[in-house]
Design a protein around this nucleic acid. Sequence first.
DNA 1: GAGTGGTCTAGACCACACC
DNA 2: GTGTGGTCTAGACCACTCA
Lengths: 245, 245
Amino acid sequence: MSDSPSIDRESFVPYYHQLKTILGERIRRGLLRPDDPLPSESELCRAYGVSRATVRRALAELASEGLLYSVQGKGTFVAKPKLEQSLFRFYSLGRDLKSRGLALESRTLSQRAVPLVEEAAARLRQPVHAPAAEIVRVRLLDGAPLALERSYVVGEAAQALLRADLSQASIYDIVEEAMGVRVIKAEEYLEPVVIDAFEAELLECSEGLPAFRIERLAFVEEDRPIELRISVIRGDRFRFFAELR
Amino acid sequence: MSDSPSIDRESFVPYYHQLKTILGERIRRGLLRPDDPLPSESELCRAYGVSRATVRRALAELASEGLLYSVQGKGTFVAKPKLEQSLFRFYSLGRDLKSRGLALESRTLSQRAVPLVEEAAARLRQPVHAPAAEIVRVRLLDGAPLALERSYVVGEAAQALLRADLSQASIYDIVEEAMGVRVIKAEEYLEPVVIDAFEAELLECSEGLPAFRIERLAFVEEDRPIELRISVIRGDRFRFFAELR
DNA sequence: GAGTGGTCTAGACCACACC
DNA sequence: GTGTGGTCTAGACCACTCA
């Protein structure tokens, strides 16, 4: 009845994956429209000559990608595309940077004890001027500055951090080792900014260049904030990408 | 041997889900640390008295959540938390805006036929100066300007768009109705910019204000681009948020 | 060769939707 | 009742890793 491709028994590609591709293509090409029902699982078993477990695996993966949804007792249906749900989006790092075998390095500019300024203290739930370890690093991509990172760590971990070799371990590794607790969560805010004179010098770019600013709060157990990190990323070397369906 | 909870056979919670919770808790609590091996699948079958398919479903879901990874022939291991894998992130619209019952309105400033400038033509795979429908709108949040949207639509849909009532239907609705094809995909790039004089006037803010620029290409079947949309969003009223584990 | 995860099958029972 | 998706089992064969 249908002219759609069938499962290639000789292929090294798993059946469930072939089926997933077949159904996914039909949806993506628009042959199946939102809220259209798919054939039932048993029909798919017959049509493609595979077991129900195989059909279910293909359907489950498509559902987890947001292409399908199932309703018990009724059937499996094509999901609406995410195109217009513009209030909730996914961004990932620019493909451009990612696909080139990026060489991301790091240069430490500062590693010292400082008192927290008011705003940082508030975020970290510390008294004003509480002691913290300040780590300032420039991140380099392919040898050229990409981002400036300022990190403020409070508590016992701060002492350890001041003595640590940052070229070897990550900040979180040191925090964990020093305190025996693990960083389990982080919150980030992303804003647009322009680069100021201080940043311009360290990033070897001109003042006023548009940039991303990412403010990150890292937490250990019991929602205790332990690190405030502010990253400034050059807008001319970096952009986010999203593909929506 | 182990003091961990076992599967409750009377519970209405599926076995695979109970197992997933048990293992997930152990990981999240830090009893299992990154790169620690989990018991093998057959060991888990014995330990919890369930079939391998059930074990595998629990493991697969934990893996898809990023808590585990498997290596064929070796075993299944605890994944590193995503905190440090800063090359792939998820962002959503700022909570702040979202949680307040936002009133998002739209004011149309322009709706006319224009020839495409070179760059837009290239993106839309059209000849230079090809005709397009230009739609310019200001998006208002709580009555104040938030974003400026410039949209260029090519092909048959352009004609329909020039006559359409944009206060009612979305651009995509009109495209679909006019052409009988559906917009099935979009690509977006997110960059930081500063607001220029033209934008400043329309957005009622000062020139030089940092802003997000989102360039979106929408596609109909066969990867044919149909719309180029450039949004400029005020950085003082808008930020992205991400929560990482 | 022994152990691991990756794939696949055939069959079972259930809860739910719809008639 | 019939058909749907949701869960679960027992068993099979494979490719891979490691000693």
